[in-house]
Amino acid sequence: MNPLENQQQLDNLKQEKDALLILFGGEHCGVCQTIKPQIFKKFTVKFPDLEMLYIDCEQSQEVCAQHGVFSLPVVQVFFMGQKFIEEVRGFSLLALEQEIEKTYAKMNS
């Protein structure tokens, strides 16, 4: 998962990538640190065109606030620059995978 450096980089990725998953987390968020490698490992294989990005909200508070992220973890998935999926705090990785799969399949057909 690639780290984010600034808001402009995020805006560029949203426009450049057909599919973008953003995990908003924090170094001191145990759940965030647990799901981060799970998401990367599972989704990299299943969705090869899905660009994945990690934003540390402890380091990039302004970016997180601009995206309405005030609790952790949060996953947002964008297709063609539009947000299609948002999961906040307690969510199932299986349900997230199924939601991505629905839209991802349509995009690649």
Results as ranks from 00 to 15, higher is better:
27 E>I: 05
26 G>C: 10
78 F>S: 03
8 Q>T: 14
56 D>Q: 03
104 Y>M: 12
101 E>A: 15
24 F>N: 02
66 Q>P: 00
28 H>M: 08
61 Q>P: 08
98 Q>G: 11
10 L>Q: 04
92 S>A: 07
53 L>W: 00
102 K>M: 12
76 Q>Y: 01
103 T>Q: 13
24 F>T: 01
45 V>I: 08
61 Q>M: 10
12 N>R: 13
78 F>M: 07
34 T>N: 10
29 C>W: 00
35 I>M: 06
77 V>N: 03
13 L>Y: 14
99 E>V: 02
92 S>R: 08
69 V>N: 06
1 M>P: 12
44 T>D: 15
89 R>A: 11
58 E>A: 07
35 I>A: 08
10 L>D: 04
80 M>N: 13
61 Q>G: 08
66 Q>R: 07
18 D>G: 14
22 I>Q: 06
55 I>G: 08
15 Q>L: 11
65 A>V: 15
101 E>F: 05
96 L>Y: 11
35 I>G: 07
37 P>M: 09
22 I>K: 05
63 V>F: 01
109 S>L: 13
85 I>D: 03
33 Q>I: 06
87 E>A: 09
67 H>T: 00
18 D>Q: 14
60 S>D: 03
36 K>G: 02
52 M>H: 05
78 F>G: 03
89 R>Y: 07
96 L>D: 11
107 M>W: 03
48 P>D: 14
29 C>V: 08
98 Q>T: 13
8 Q>A: 15
82 Q>V: 08
19 A>Y: 00
29 C>E: 04
88 V>L: 10
86 E>P: 03
27 E>P: 00
52 M>D: 05
50 L>K: 06
78 F>N: 02
103 T>P: 00
67 H>F: 11
23 L>G: 02
25 G>T: 10
74 V>W: 07
49 D>G: 05
19 A>V: 01
41 K>E: 12
109 S>W: 01
66 Q>S: 09
34 T>W: 02
27 E>D: 07
89 R>T: 14
101 E>P: 03
49 D>Q: 14
23 L>H: 05
100 I>T: 05
68 G>P: 13
107 M>C: 06
10 L>M: 11
44 T>Y: 13
3 P>G: 00
22 I>D: 02
83 K>S: 12
73 P>E: 11
99 E>N: 15
26 G>L: 08
68 G>A: 08
